[in-house]
Amino acid sequence: MKSYIYITRHGESVWNVEGKVQGITDTPLTEKGIAQAHELAKKIKESGIKIDEVIHSPLSRAADTAKIVAEENGLPLSVEPRLIEQNFGEYEGHEWEKHPGVFHEAKKQFACDYNGGESMLRLGQRIYNLIDELKERSEKENKTFLLVTHGGIARMFHSYFFSETNEEFSSTNIDNCEVKEYEF
């Protein structure tokens, strides 16, 4: 029997609007982000996607999105600390337009920790271990999970299922409240 796992990125946040790298900085949802979360909840309900549990990052932008989805669909909700966004060290708060391409290039340096942040290698270990655990739970408990998290986590999540070049990896993106399906 096929089993699936779903991942989505939080609704629009204040720093998304301001064009800043968020990382582990806890920035709130905008009114648009809240509306996106309600739309996501409606989309899930209408799609007939079978979800048994919503699991989210501890950062408020993801937690608030997850709470809306879970409440509107009558689903259990749990926090997973490993779904927190990557710590981008010196790039936290970095304004995209002032330094075009700099952060994109830094994401290709897998062992670099951004001067005090978390390297891609460490992030990969964290996320790949979590996916392995969720796969095991999915098989044992016959459950399907929706993970509500962040762009960097979704990028790493995607790399677990698909082989990519460094360029493809650093360019992989997920829109706010976009849902991606993966098959175990």
Rank of each mutant, 00 (worst) to 15 (best):
E118Q: 05
K2Y: 13
G33S: 08
N176T: 15
A63C: 01
S138F: 08
N16H: 07
P58W: 14
E178P: 04
S171G: 04
R82L: 13
P28H: 03
I84A: 11
F161E: 08
E95P: 01
S170Y: 04
V79Q: 15
S3W: 09
R137W: 06
E72G: 01
R126C: 05
R122P: 00
K32I: 14
I55S: 00
E164P: 00
Y91A: 06
A41V: 01
K98G: 04
E168L: 12
E80F: 07
E133Y: 03
L40W: 04
R61Y: 03
L134A: 10
L77W: 09
I5F: 06
Q36M: 07
H150Q: 03
G93I: 08
E18T: 03
P81N: 13
N173M: 14
A106R: 15
V17K: 14
S138R: 09
G33N: 09
V69R: 00
E90P: 02
E118L: 08
T165H: 13
A41E: 05
I5M: 13
Y6D: 02
D26W: 01
N115K: 14
E141M: 14
K45A: 04
S159N: 12
D113S: 08
T172D: 04
A63F: 13
L130M: 14
H158Y: 12
D175A: 15
D132W: 07
Q109V: 07
T25P: 00
T8N: 01
E136Q: 06
D113P: 06
H158N: 12
R9C: 08
P58H: 14
R122L: 14
M156D: 00
W15Q: 08
R126G: 05
V148F: 08
S47V: 07
Q125S: 04
L75H: 11
D26I: 06
V54I: 13
P100M: 10
Q22S: 10
P100I: 15
L40F: 00
E85H: 10
N115F: 10
N166H: 12
T172Q: 06
S13N: 02
G33M: 06
